[in-house]
Design a protein around this nucleic acid. Structure first.
Lengths: 219, 219, 219, 219
DNA sequence: GATGAATGAGTCTTCATTCAT
DNA sequence: AATGAATGAAGACTCATTCAT
């Protein structure tokens, strides 16, 4: 597939050691997504990367290490993107929050981030390291991001003063549901599922709810 | 071997043939909850049920069959309970919805239903049959239940006219998040997590949001 | 081989769990003797025992455990025999020592104890547990045995007062050499090697030497 | 890459092509000593020699070839030394023999010759070529050396007329035991072990024994 | 109905060896 | 000459499943 020169037999390798680990992770991601950790075979991953089993072990010491690296590589760039996206936002908090949910959430829900999130949830129980990493690198950063937006809204009287960890989860929840639904139940459901519609409704209901509660708080 | 003489008193024990499968499923549930499908060993399940591996196969044809039966048995009674709980509710829709969320959601989130939900989500990808069953028996019934309550609210002008599948997911989402958090990330987080607090906040924000949108719709 | 009933296919197993481990060790010994630890394949051992790989793991948790058990089983009964043999001896020390060397040493050197000793020596470096066991169960008991005989001789003025650990090794040394020679070099040597002759010469030279030194000490 | 400009000063280093194999063997010896043949990895050897795996195969066709060469190289110079040492000895046979044992044996037992001997013994079973080489180059030459000394003693009536292969083994035995003990059991024994003390006792007992038997023969 | 001994396919992992560069 | 990426055969170990007792 990615074999650039395959006349006859082609060279067994070409000097690209530095690129290999990333290539392999890229190849491994769909395998893990499709089968989960336990059912994914190293050989599948190797084949997907166009190498043989042994080669995989030149770059990673174990299946678990591959898995952890895959999750990391799949997630970290997205987090960076998300943070950049937020950093650019300006203005009152409520529309900002709505936009965040719609843009970020929409992105998550329509790309393979949905699968990745589901994968992490599914396997984190067996991989405390993954769980820890995810909490630290994804959730914590997401929360800190949200908390800034939310604090703005609280300061401006737009939002009620709820605990950040709670609010964050309320914000995220429908996004995750959309991800889970799309990856898990949509394939066995004949009714269409439009994740974007869910995200939009969520944005509307949530901001309306927060606004209403804020006003009630003021009374 | 150490069998005491039992001629006089009749059999010391009586195998509850009919009860066996259910007993096994009960024993198997915690094993699957703890390890997931792949890592759960038949021997663990057998041991938990106080029998040997071979016996398990007298009642179930395969590990997968056990798993599916376990999930079914764990979930069905809860659904029935939930439906009963709803059937008894009366009055305006908003407080009913809030109560539903708090009572049902609270129950889910604090019992091992949380683990079960997480298990289903984690494994449904590998078990279409589970996914199908869950969608059909759990989600569909839950939705139908919700839809009755929600329709009440829409009719009364309390709720905006959103699509039922969307609303249902919005209602459920934080409950699921609470379940996932508790089973997956709380164990690796040192900050305390109070699922009930999340559920309550959810109930408040959601009903407030729906109410606000309903009013806006009327204008 | 030991299959008692093999018409057509024969039963896959017959209730003999208790005998199995010992049978397997017996089967494993020659495999280890022939190949050493590293080169011995579990499958070889299984085949030698008339079972398949998996069965081996019903009884032993690892290759190393098998190895250790094999060595133990091969050695312990011999030690017991040796101790019994010594316990029965009476009379002055020098002939007793000579008899010990000739009978015990002769036995070692002509049976597969020679191979076992060589095996232990060869692998003990990689198996501290084996080394420790051997030192404790074989060497220590052998020494204690020797030391009783030797003390007798010292008390009677027959032997010089040398440190027991030294004397023991002098007594054992040619026996071990004979064992090593027979298992290691004799197969590639065309000259015949008679271990018994070596043992006899050793007994004579050693007792003569000890006697001479004892007399010199007295002067 | 970081190669400094070398046009002006000529090559910074010069590969000693001819020396390479010897260097590698030197590097390989400790690896084999520490791990034995099977557990020694080519990569370890290469690393110890400061080259990469591939380079090793420029000089040796296989791991086994390296091993054989290592043993050869480790042993041959010692043999030469030993023969030189003997060639210089003069005088009556008994003290000569004692000196030989103490000096040669002492040297063996306190240097890594002990480890090498143990290595050969451990692996010779799997490497007939090694066994053959060792018998031919080491044992045979050692024997011939001993036989000259011994014949001197027999001629002078100092020693009894025992077969040379037997006597040789009696002479060597405690040396080997010392070597084996030091490398194999001493590490798991908390009591101190002084190989020199053993060698000295051996020299004394052996010469005394040979002398006594010689006198008895004369009677 | 239960048992538990036995199986053997399935996987990860290691490492000697090859060979394009 | 040296490298080091890649290979693939080999082997330990696991465990769902079978079936004689």
């Amino acid at each position: 597939m990615t074999e650039p020169d395959s006349t006859a037999e082609g060279p067994r390798w070409r000097r690209r050691k530095e690129a290999r680990p990333a290539e392999m992770l890229e190849a491994a991601l769909p395998v893990f997504l499709k089968k989960g950790f336990a059912a994914a075979r190293i050989e599948d991953i190797a084949a997907a990367a166009g190498v043989t089993k042994g080669t995989v072990y030149l770059y990673f010491p174990s299946k678990q290490a591959i898995f952890e690296a895959v999750v990391r590589q799949a997630i970290l760039p997205r987090i960076d993107m998300a943070e950049a996206l937020v950093a650019g936002h300006r203005g009152p908090a409520a529309p900002l929050l709505a936009r965040l949910i719609e843009e970020l959430g929409g992105r998550v829900v329509t790309t393979d981030l949905a699968h990745i999130a589901k994968l992490v949830i599914a396997e984190a129980g067996n991989f405390p390291e993954i769980a820890r990493f995810y909490r630290r690198e994804v959730i914590a950063r997401g929360e800190s991001l949200m908390s800034r937006v939310y604090a703005l809204g609280v300061a401006g009287g737009e939002f009620p003063d709820l605990p950040i960890p709670i609010v964050t989860k309320l914000i995220i929840a429908p996004v995750l549901i959309a991800a889970i639904w799309r990856t898990t139940f949509a394939p066995v459901d004949d009714r269409p599922f439009d994740p974007i519609e869910l995200i939009r409704a969520h944005a509307r209901v949530l901001t309306a709810g927060l606004g209403a509660l804020a006003r009630k708080d003021l009374e």
